[in-house]
Write a protein that binds this DNA or RNA. Structure first.
Lengths: 232, 232
DNA sequence: CACGCTACAGTACTAAGTACGAAAGCGCTA
DNA sequence: TAGCGCTTTCGTACTTAGTACTGTAGCGTG
């Protein structure tokens, strides 16, 4: 049980909402969201379970809080710069945050009320797109598209059993059995995914580039090729 | 408590793995994944909790099973047809399934082992893309991009508090307070999202169109504009 | 020195997953 | 018909988790 001992020695840091939430993130990172219980969190912080309730109303508030903490780790785009590189930076940063904290992805579905970091993040992103000349409607389209891609990619990455090393041997044997039933899955696995240099994570920037380039076509004032998105 | 009484009258349908899983989907659809407990499921099926364990090893197996059930509701693309319309149909169908069963989105992250419907689905999709002339690498790129978009969109749709009606009044008041702190969020809300005809769900086909068009550019044999994806 | 506020903790209740083993139903044969 | 054994269902009880309610230690202030 190599649980992280957050505090070093004698002088006990007093509890705080901050420490509770950061502790919760640490526990979830270490053992998944299932390992985050009021008891395990209390133990992590060196206190008894009921002490947590002085700082948070209940577990639900902790879940809301740590989702917002994850959002706070994402680089905010700045409205000044080139929108494309700003969006790329934001996307890469968001995906990294969600890879560090995969449990956050599933939480976002169930948690309804956004925290301040979440709101700030959305506001900065919208502001960057609007500032770049996207109409309100186009901004909505672009944002929905980008965030769908980011979250969806993170979701897939989290569910994929592909630790580049772990799986290679295990999967190969299993795949052999299904070769005739799932020929294309088998082809993809043996000819591509199980190849030496393959890393699913590399797909992220590829797809992101496709999306950003496609969005470029729809921005006003840039007479590109056929506009894929007609402002409605 | 208008719980569905699955069986009508006297003759009791015997339990089965099938009935257990379908009952689990019904409970989760009705009350969210949190409402799905071995006890609530047993009640739904008119049996005692421990009876379920004759058909499934535990709750984890139920969760795996219902995720696979959701996959089975998605239209399989057929390798014969036009890849673009096949992919569109699959995507629309998948998003519908995930909107019917929003709890499934978060589950996919934690459930590692895919069921037969899931595998069949992936195989058919890969087959359709390969059959349309995509290289193995391009197929991987396209699939990652499409599925990321689909799952991510479903995830956002599930977490959005936007029931077109419910929110309008409630949000407007709250938004007013944050107007200066989150100006762009406010603009988006008041000028777009809260407008009469707005439905976030409509964004799906827009983004899907962008992605499919962008992918078109990268298919061999179609000398389109600048290839956004270079086969690697 | 007592009052009272802040911070933390103990006890205990409820809900949920499920191990273990018993019992009920049922078809079959002797 | 009685008995056997397999299939299916269930009762009891143990464990873990969230948390309501209450208690108490520490400490600053009048």
């Amino acid at each position: 049980m190599p649980k992280l001992e957050s505090q070093s020695r004698g002088e006990r840091v007093p509890l705080s909402r901050e420490r509770v939430l950061r502790g919760a993130v640490a526990v979830a990172d270490a053992g998944g969201i299932g390992a985050l219980t009021m008891r395990s969190l209390a133990h992590e912080l060196g206190v008894r379970p009921m002490s947590l309730y002085y700082y948070v109303a209940g577990k639900a508030e902790i879940l809301d809080g740590i989702v917002d903490l994850v959002f706070s780790e994402i680089d905010l785009p700045s409205p000044g710069g080139d929108w494309k590189s700003q969006m790329r930076r934001r996307a890469v940063s968001a995906r990294r945050a969600l890879r560090r904290h995969p449990w956050a992805i599933g939480l976002m579905e169930s948690r309804a009320d956004p925290g301040p970091a979440t709101l700030r993040h959305h506001d900065a992103t919208l502001g960057t797109l609007r500032g770049a000349g996207f109409s309100v409607a186009m901004t909505a389209h672009a944002y929905a598209l980008l965030d769908s891609y980011i979250y969806g990619f993170a979701l897939q990455e989290a569910s994929l059993p592909f630790n580049p090393e772990t799986v290679t041997e295990a999967t190969e044997a299993i795949m052999a059995q299904f070769a005739d039933e799932y020929p294309h899955l088998t082809e993809m696995a043996t000819d591509h995914i199980l190849q030496p240099g393959y890393d699913f994570g590399d797909e992220f920037e590829i797809g992101l580039g496709v999306i950003l380039d496609a969005l470029t076509r729809s921005i006003p004032g840039r007479p590109q090729q056929t506009p894929l998105l007609t402002a409605d």
